[in-house]
């Protein structure tokens, strides 16, 4: 596992965890047919937290964060996002989705739209923001992820790292209160991983609530305030990064860390 190191110091002045609860998951269970993917998940995320979720392949990390914006449906228990409970009520689902941004492993940009159109589509059609204003917001965020000059190109003309930064900007244009990342750097070449992680660090510095499935342990150590370890559909262990890496409690965590850190 490559460990990018971050040259600059991380500015922690805005990284404050508030008492306000952003996401509350209570006794959540999910099955795929007979297969019990998520077992009794309990998790409370406060506004401003930066959580890294790790675990072996197939442990249910993606499934869990995809339940938070209802890309997957849970079968029992409760998920409350920003005060709205996720039920089959479409109104609630739409409300949650417009508050929660998501970045995917394979970017999932819309290939038939320009970068700018990718970024303005949801603000215009979901938030009903005037086109001009949406474009200004989009340019602001594209500048933030350092690709304003690509605004009129199509996704296919950009490198993987650039595409992923556009995907982040696209989510930010909806001004979400929570950001979900599902292995945002796993499909990238090493030299592009850093540019995406840098963007994510900047986001963390601004106090965004983030849940991030990733194998980038350097990132976890640098910005996470909590690391969650999942295995076989359960949350096995959670701790602050320092204790998580230096003093893991369960055997499974130790085994996983020894594999991933190559000790």
């Amino acid at each position: 596992m490559t460990e990018p190191h971050f040259e600059r110091d991380i500015d922690r002045s805005h990284m404050q965890v508030s008492d306000e609860v952003a996401i509350q998951i209570e006794n959540m269970n999910k099955w795929y047919g007979q297969f019990h993917v998520l077992r009794d998940i309990n998790l409370t995320v406060n506004q401003g937290e930066r959580i890294v979720i790790a675990g072996p392949s197939g442990s249910g990390k993606s499934t869990m964060i995809r339940c938070i914006n209802r890309l997957e449906e849970h079968q029992s228990g409760r998920i409350i996002v920003d005060g709205t409970e996720l039920t089959s009520d479409l109104k609630n689902i739409d409300k949650v989705r417009s508050e929660v941004g998501m970045v995917f492993q394979h970017f999932n940009l819309f290939p038939h739209l320009t970068i700018l159109e990718n970024c303005t589509l949801a603000p215009i059609w979901v938030r009903k923001i005037p086109k001009k204003e949406a474009e200004e917001t989009a340019m602001y965020f594209l500048e933030k992820v350092k690709i304003p000059d690509q605004a009129l190109k199509y996704p296919g003309q950009l490198s993987g790292g650039q595409q992923q930064r556009v995907a982040i900007a696209r989510s930010l244009c909806m001004k979400p209160r929570i950001m979900l990342f599902d292995e945002p750097t796993s499909a990238l070449d090493p030299e592009m991983i850093k540019e995406v992680l840098d963007t994510m660090i900047e986001l963390a510095e601004e106090g965004m609530t983030m849940l991030c499935v990733t194998h980038e342990m350097g990132f976890a150590q640098a910005v996470a305030n909590r690391v969650i370890f999942m295995d076989q559909g359960q949350i096995v262990e959670q701790n602050n990064p320092h204790d998580f890496f230096n003093n893991p409690q369960s055997e499974r965590t130790k085994l996983f860390l020894s594999q991933i850190l190559g000790h």
Binding site: L71, R97, S98, F107, N108, L121, A122, S171, M174
Partner: peptide, 17 residues
């Protein structure tokens, strides 16, 4: 690809949009 549907859902676009 499924990702296109998922990205549209995640952005809060309803089915018709």
């Amino acid at each position: 690809p499924r990702g296109q549907y998922e990205a549209a859902d995640a952005l809060g676009l309803d089915y018709w949009k």
